[in-house]
Design a protein around this nucleic acid. Structure first.
Lengths: 236, 236
DNA sequence: CGACTCGTGGCACTGAGTGCACTCCTCGGG
DNA sequence: CCCGAGGAGTGCACTCAGTGCCACGAGTCG
């Protein structure tokens, strides 16, 4: 906390944290829907209007740090030189989210149990996750601009990365934040990388002309070609 | 108005449709957030309380048929014999959603424009899509129960299928429902099928020797091969 | 000292969603 | 033919999330 005074968007009003603490205390002992915003501000000792100053909605108090994390991810993706392997890059970006969860394990586990129970919070979490996915997909779309089905591949790969990330994250959260999360995450993301071109470990830059294909008859459907390719690769 | 008062056996209460029609009329001419539930029920000529009898929330009136479609998808997945290729099966299940959209093109396009503008409807759509994805993932989890990373693969593949489906669906919706949607959809889902091992199409009895493929290097990832094939086919 | 801003709090209001009670209308049985 | 049951529709009152507006106090700059 050395340089904490640059510009208007300063980071940490104590009131925000007090509201989060009061909210979670009530959510855990009484349930989310049974807690009104008036209850929260009464416990925190602040005015009701101030709550909506810091959180645009009651749901936002449950995810107080995702806004910053999303900004971090966007910055990470924009900071690249453009020479990185795209799939690996978005996998590394996804790891930022895991890191944020791992910074406060008990808080993350409490929030996980909360969102698992309350449908409204699950829906809100979806919109948060969607923004992460959009950030990854937008990055991949830019990187894949020259490809033929660039936007399709970008959307699919981004969704796959997010799904793998969430799978590993939920497994870690279900174990109450015990165990090593990053190993599970590496394994899950490696699966996605193996499915989509990105070499799991980047040993060499791939030449664009690795592949030579000869097709004997034009009438054959694409799936037949792909099938032949797979069996050919399997025989080699 | 011919008051159609059929018995319990009728599946379509006219009041529900009247509410949807009144709601969309107002949403299109005045905007979603500028339209209150009171406005809708006033135009439909029914009581306000009846609205919430048919739709649990204001957002639900925008997606009046997804509940049925989700039930159809669940039934379709449960109806299988267990011998189908799983990835292809979920792709076919996803096509059910496209079919529902294609049944009412103008309605689907109107709703698309609406959800694109209103953040609250986008969030609601996410929760709808999430339920489809869960249905696909649950099916794949059962089919992959014996695999080593079965749940991981199920989640990732389900997300990829949904992403590919949405990519094709949105492309069709953006073109105002013109053009052939199923061709784009087939292409998008073929990409997913090529990425994840399942044989793209059931090995039907086709003449097996249409295709001869030569691949120069084994290290190249499968998607790269597929990309090369498509461009090769395109050039021919 | 006044003007200006900023963080805060105090209403009052809109609108979504709910619980309850009431009215019809229909159906089935005496 | 009447009567009671039950379900569909409705009106009313209520809770609560979220917003707009304004007032108040503290700090700052001129």
């Amino acid at each position: 906390m050395s340089s904490e005074k640059a510009g208007a968007g300063n980071g940490k009003p104590p009131m925000r944290d007090a509201l989060v603490a009061a909210a979670f205390q009530l959510f855990l002992e009484r349930g989310y829907e049974q807690t009104t915003v008036d209850d929260i501000v009464a416990l925190a000792g602040v005015g009701r209007r101030s709550f909506f100053r810091y959180f645009p909605s009651k749901e936002d108090v449950v995810f107080p740090d995702h806004e910053r994390c999303l900004a971090d991810m966007t910055a990470f993706l924009a900071a690249g030189t453009g020479g990185e392997e795209p799939v690996r890059r978005v996998c590394d970006a996804a790891r930022l989210v895991l890191r944020m969860y791992a910074e406060n394990p008990t808080f993350s586990v409490q929030r996980y149990r909360l969102t698992k129970k309350v449908p409204g919070l699950r829906a809100y979490e979806l919109s948060v996750v969607w923004r992460y996915e959009r950030a990854l997909a937008d990055y991949l779309r830019r990187r894949f601009a020259a490809r033929r089905d660039g936007t399709l591949q970008a959307d699919v790969i981004a969704a796959a990365v997010v799904a793998a990330h969430n799978n590993a994250l939920r497994s870690w959260l279900r174990s109450d934040g015990q165990g090593e999360a990053s190993a599970t995450m590496d394994h899950a993301l490696a699966y996605v990388q193996s499915a989509f071109g990105g070499t799991p470990v980047p040993p060499a830059r791939e030449e664009p002309e690795d592949v030579v294909v000869v097709v004997s008859r034009r009438g054959a459907p694409l799936w037949r070609v792909v099938q032949e390719i797979e069996s050919t690769l399997g025989r080699l």
